[in-house]
Structures are given as C-alpha cells and as structure tokens.
Simulated assay, not measured.
Amino acid sequence: MNKYLILCVDDEREVLDSVLQDIDCFEEYFLLEGAESVAEAKEIIADAQAEGTQLALILCDHIMPEQTGISFLIELYDDKLTTKAKKLLLTGQAGLEDTVEAINHASLDFYLAKPWNGDEIRDTVKNLLTQFIIENEPQPMPWAQALDTEKIFNAIAENRISFGE
C-alpha cells in the first residue's frame, strides 16, 4: 500500500531525525524518507517515481545551503509529476515575504514554525495526507484507518451521491 511518499527535507540531521520520529506513525501506510539537501530530495523523488511511488507530502525547511526550501517547493509545484503533492514549510527563519511567495507560487498548504509540537505536526500531516488521498486516490477506503476516517467516509459518500450510485 506504500505507493505514496512522505519526504522530509532539512539540512540539520538532528532536526530531520526529530521530524521523521514525530511522524513515523504514518510509515505503515506511506513510504517515509528524509533528505539533508534539495539535491538528495530530488534523487529520492526520482527514485520513487521510477518505482511508481508518487510524492504525497513534502515537509521542507526554508534555509538550506544550495537552494531555499521555498524555491524548491515552487519547483515541485511547477512540475506536473509533483504539483499535486501537499507542501508544508517547516522553518523558524522564513520571513513574511518568503512565506507569501511560497503561498502564491508554490501552493503552500501549511506553515509550521520551529520549534514545533509533536502532536501539532502529526495532526497537520494527517490532515494534509487526508486531503491528498481524497483528491488523488480513486479508492480512499483503505486509507481511512490511518488518516481522518470521518473526512474520508464523507468524501466517499459525496462521490456516491454525485455519481448517482
């Protein structure tokens, strides 16, 4: 069932490990990967796509050595293979102007400031993944156990009504 990827990108290994640990509850249903650079993240995405795994969610830091998180998120949004992925900016250093750019040009779905709370990041990830599955998965029922059951059941019911089943 791991045909969707959750990718965390942060150049600080301790932060990356902490994020991955906070959201490892989704690992049973999603492929969970971490990258310490945008270049590594691009390799992970390319490898996943080659195996038929789609990027569902990216959690990305903003300030990184070779490319900012926001410019990377814009790049992902502009790519037809990754445009549908939910995008979460996780940073303590993006200013208002940067954040507005991410919202306007990268279709940023959520912003969390560092330091974050474990429950807050899990709830946010769960909500974003639920939205992604409802929007992109033709058979969302198997995902109800790991995500927001009520929202998935409501989406299934709405589709039945709209299709006249």
Rank of each mutant, 00 (worst) to 15 (best):
L76H: 03
Y77E: 09
K80W: 05
L81D: 11
L81S: 04
T82I: 00
K84S: 12
A85L: 08
K86G: 09
K86C: 03
K86L: 02
K87V: 04
L89K: 02
T91I: 06
T91K: 08
G92D: 00
G95F: 05
L96Y: 14
E97M: 12
E97V: 13
E97S: 11
E97I: 11
D98K: 03
T99D: 01
E101Q: 13
E101A: 14
A102P: 07
I103S: 10
N104Y: 14
A106S: 13
S107E: 10
L108V: 07
D109G: 10
Y111M: 00
A113P: 00
A113W: 02
P115H: 10
P115S: 05
W116M: 03
G118I: 07
D119K: 13
E120A: 13
D123R: 14
D123T: 13
V125G: 08
V125A: 15
K126E: 15
L128R: 10
L129R: 12
L129W: 13
T130Y: 02
I133G: 01
I133D: 03
E135I: 00
E135P: 00
M141C: 02
P142L: 09
A144H: 08
A144I: 10
A146G: 14
A146K: 13
D148K: 13
D148N: 15
T149Y: 12
E150M: 12
K151M: 14
A155H: 04
A155M: 08
N159E: 13
R160L: 07
R160F: 11
I161D: 03
S162P: 02
F163E: 05
